[in-house]
Amino acid sequence: MEVRTIKVFTTVDNINLHTQVVDMSMTYGQQFGPTYLDGADVTKIKPHNSHEGKTFYVLPNDDTLRVEAFEYYHTTDPSFLGRYMSALNHTKKWKYPQVNGLTSIKWADNNCYLATALLTLQQIELKFNPPALQDAYYRARAGEAANFCALILAYCNKTVGELGDVRETMSYLFQHANLDSCKRVLNVVCKTCGQQQTTLKGVEAVMYMGTLSYEQFKKGVQIPCTCGKQATKYLVQQESPFVMMSAPPAQYELKHGTFTCASEYTGNYQCGHYKHITSKETLYCIDGALLTKSSEYKGPITDVFYKENSYTTTIK
Rank of each mutant, 00 (worst) to 15 (best):
P34Y: 15
E2F: 11
L290A: 15
M24E: 11
R184L: 02
M244Q: 02
L118Q: 01
V67A: 11
R4F: 12
V189Y: 11
A132S: 07
Y113M: 05
L102G: 05
V160C: 08
K298E: 15
I15N: 08
L118A: 05
L88T: 04
P47C: 06
L114P: 04
N178Q: 10
S295A: 14
K201F: 12
F242V: 02
G210S: 00
L81E: 07
N89S: 12
A140P: 03
D41N: 10
K158Q: 05
Y208I: 09
K229P: 03
N111F: 05
R184P: 03
V166P: 02
C149Y: 05
A145I: 02
P47W: 05
A142S: 13
E168G: 09
Y84C: 02
L186R: 02
N178H: 08
R167A: 05
G267P: 06
L291W: 14
P224T: 15
Y284V: 13
T226C: 10
N268E: 11
N187D: 08
Y234Q: 08
S246A: 03
T199F: 07
N61I: 15
C156H: 01
H256A: 13
S86H: 06
V236S: 06
F217D: 00
T266S: 14
V42H: 11
T314A: 12
T169M: 07
T76Y: 13
N89M: 08
Y284T: 12
C112T: 04
S279W: 04
M85Q: 09
G299A: 09
N309L: 10
T198N: 11
D303A: 01
Q270F: 06
I6A: 08
K127S: 13
N16Y: 08
S240C: 03
V221I: 15
K219E: 08
K54N: 14
T169G: 00
Y208M: 09
D303Y: 02
I301F: 02
S279A: 09
F32V: 13
G29D: 10
G82W: 12
Q20K: 14
N129D: 08
G101K: 06
Y84P: 01
D13L: 05
D109S: 06
F80N: 04
V58M: 08
N187A: 14
Y96D: 04
N110E: 05
V160H: 01
L173M: 15
L37H: 14
G82R: 15
G194Q: 02
A87H: 02
L153Q: 03
T198Y: 13
T76V: 13
T43I: 05
W107P: 04
A289Q: 12
F56T: 05
E264F: 00
E2Q: 10
T302G: 00
